[in-house]
Every structure is written in C-alpha cells, then in structure tokens.
C-alpha cells in the first residue's frame, strides 16, 4: 500500500517537473526578442561560448575515435579478407550512431554543464532578479539565446565529428595499414546513402541538441542558488542529459532503421 502511494507520488512529482520544464521551454522560446539586432548579437556570443569552445574537444575525440575504429575494423575485417570494407564500416558507424551520440555526450559534459553553472551563478548573484527588476524578461534575455545557440551548435558539431572521424580513419587505414584508397572510397560511397545515413544522423543530433540544451538551461534556472545547489544542478545536467541521449537514441534508431 505504502509502496503504491510512493509510486504514485513519485510519478506525479515527475509529471509536474516535466510539465514545469515544458512551460519554461515554451515561454523562453515563444517570447520573441523585441529587437532583432540585439538578439543576433546575444546569439553570436552564445554560439561562441557553446559552439566554438566545444570545437577542440569534438575534433580531437572525433579523430581518435575514427582512428580506433579503423584499427579495430581492420583487424576483424582482414580475417575475412575484406579489409577494403573498413571505409564502409567507418562511415556507417560514425554517421548513423557514433557521431550524434558521442558528440551529444561530450556536449552535455562540456557545454551543458557550463550553461547550467553560468545560469545558476547568475541566479545566485541575483543577476536574474536584477533583470526582472529592470523590467527585462530573463527568459528572453538569458535563456532563449542560450537555448537556440545550443540547438544550432550540436548538429554542426556532430557533422564535424563525422568528417574528422572519417579523415582520421582514412589516415590510419590508407596511410598506415595500406588499404587501397580507391577501394576505401568506392566501397564507402556505394554503401552510404545521403538521406538514410547522413540525414538520419543529422536528425538524431538535432533531437539530442534540443533535449540536452533544454535540460541544461532548465537545471540552471531552477537550481538552488547556493554554491552547493549549483554543483548539484551541474551534475544533474550531465547525468540526466547523458541518460536522455542514450534512451532517445534507442527510440530514434528503432524508428529510423528498425523496419527491416
């Protein structure tokens, strides 16, 4: 009986939290910026903070993951005498799965946590209240540009991840392991389709970007405004964000590639 009550209470709390977060998201996106030039300037600042500053980690991990995939793939494929297919393996696994998921996880750790911490700090130092006192909506001024920047950046980063991963794999397999480069490219081009592979990967990244950025800005905005509260909110952003990415990835993969 108590267990049932507990379960019910937990579910209702959860539902309430999701509802609040949904209203929060709708408000921050729908309350459109008043002045166009001003909001573009804010957006560019956030694109820099969220996108450009995440670029290094994404490029480096993309290159390494591509190189590792090429090595692993080569050692297995060479047993079947089809080491030329390493390009195909590389491109398909990166485009469909690894690039969106790994980029989103890195993004949650790098940009998501810093968004939460930044907004949380603004709340703790009463900057958010201060905007409100000046008759400026903090949702529109602080949250909206950060959310939009996050949604724009993650798909771009995911594509850059794929490209560097493929180049990294190319260097290892063609440059080091001696795979014939013509076969590498032609097998890759034969098996990779623009709409099913590249576009589906892009759509995945777009879905992840909405969810991760949403979690990050909401956790920052709703955090307890103390140093402990900000720390907890940052941890929650990374944990919740990562779990949401992996769960959503399963759903999206089933929807996109599930019909055999």
């Amino acid at each position: 009986m108590n267990l049932l009550v507990g379960l019910g209470a937990w579910f209702l709390n959860w539902l309430e939290a999701v509802g609040r977060a949904g209203i929060f998201l709708a408000q921050s996106v729908l309350r459109m910026p008043v002045r166009f030039r001003e909001s573009i300037r804010l957006l560019i600042q956030q694109l820099y903070a969220v996108g450009v500053l995440s670029l290094v980690i994404v490029v480096v991990s993309g290159a390494f993951i591509g190189m590792v995939l090429a090595l692993q793939g080569y050692s297995i494929l060479s047993k079947f005498g089809s080491e030329e297919a390493v390009g195909q393996l590389l491109a398909l696994s990166l485009l469909r799965e690894l690039a969106p998921v790994v980029t989103a996880l890195l993004f949650a750790g790098r940009a998501g946590s810093s968004l939460t911490a930044e907004i949380g700090l603004m709340k703790a130092t009463e900057q958010l209240s201060s905007y409100e006192m000046m008759g400026v909506d903090p949702l529109r001024r602080i949250i909206a540009p950060r959310f939009i920047a996050g949604v724009i950046c993650l798909p771009l980063l995911s594509i850059i991840f794929s490209a560097t991963g493929i180049i990294g794999g190319l260097l290892v397999s063609v440059g080091w392991l001696g795979v014939h480069d013509g076969a590498f490219w032609s097998l890759m081009q034969q098996s990779v389709y623009f709409d099913t592979d590249i576009m589906n990967g892009f759509i995945k990244a777009l879905c992840f970007s909405v969810v991760v950025t949403w979690i990050a800005v909401y956790q920052g905005y709703e955090c307890v405004p103390t140093s402990e509260g900000i720390g907890k909110a940052t941890t929650r952003t990374v944990v919740l964000g990562s779990l949401a990415i992996l769960a959503l990835d399963f759903v999206l993969t089933a929807a996109m590639f599930g019909d055999f």
Binding site: T125, E126, Q127, S129, S130, M134, G135
Partner: peptide
Amino acid sequence: RKKMGMLFQSGALF
C-alpha cells in the same frame, strides 16, 4: 518596475 530601482545585496552587476 521601471519606476523602481533595486540595489541587490551582491550588487548583481551583469
């Protein structure tokens, strides 16, 4: 609120 000014405890400078 435009007619109100508030000095916050922490200053709350942006």
